[in-house]
């Protein structure tokens, strides 16, 4: 994010106000994001706490009027990669080779060979949705959470994840196709979609 370029010099009263009014209201989204990354309540709590402490410490790097939620999500994502991922047993990286070239190639493969039906999707319950999402690799899970659950724009996601917008789009596309596969497999196992 370009915020690093401009350092602010907030008074301690301003800092408290920004922290209270612009940062803390996002704690619910932050905690849920942290939980969906770590799958552990204590880890999620630690991650959120660490994120807020960093946010306070580096508050002069935050520019008022810019998107506080995106700024916080970026710090959380970086903390997760730097501190938490090392500890956890998650595979470090997904191989994106075939994925990242998606929007660069002239022949865009838009085929979506899914039998998934709208009615099936509408009948899914929370746990089923959760299981399908959680079964995705963390990088794919992340883009779906940021886009569909939290409503960030491609531009904001690009800043949060430090990747170009084209990569956001290709990752999101791949993530959605994988999610559809999971949902479809689930629907089949339950005897839907006959």
């Amino acid at each position: 994010m370009s915020v690093e370029k401009v350092k602010q010099n907030y008074s301690s009263r301003e800092k408290d106000r920004i922290f209270e009014q612009e940062f803390l209201p996002h704690i619910g989204s932050m905690y849920n994001f942290a939980y969906r990354l770590t799958f552990d309540e204590d880890d999620a709590k630690d991650l959120v706490q660490e994120t807020y402490l960093k946010a306070f410490r580096f508050l002069n790097s935050f520019q008022q009027g810019t998107n506080a939620k995106a700024w916080l999500f970026r710090i959380l994502k970086n903390s997760f990669i730097n501190d938490f991922r090392k500890k956890s047993k998650q595979p470090a990286k997904v191989d994106y080779q075939e994925v990242e070239t998606f929007y660069n190639s002239e022949d865009v493969d838009v085929s979506m060979t899914t039998d998934l039906r709208v009615e099936t999707v509408q009948h899914m319950i929370g746990d089923e949705v959760s299981n399908a999402l959680n079964a995705l690799a963390v990088d794919f899970r992340t883009v779906i959470i940021l886009c569909d659950l939290e409503g960030f724009t491609y531009e904001e996601m690009s800043k949060i994840l430090d990747i170009p917008i084209g990569t956001v789009r290709s990752r999101l596309h791949r993530a959605r196709n994988l999610l559809k596969e999971k949902l479809q497999a689930y629907a089949k196992s339950m005897g839907y979609n006959k």
Partner: peptide
């Protein structure tokens, strides 16, 4: 509908 499902059904 999938986007809507993610937004509304996740606990």
């Amino acid at each position: 509908s999938i986007k809507e499902m993610i937004r509304t059904k996740l606990e």
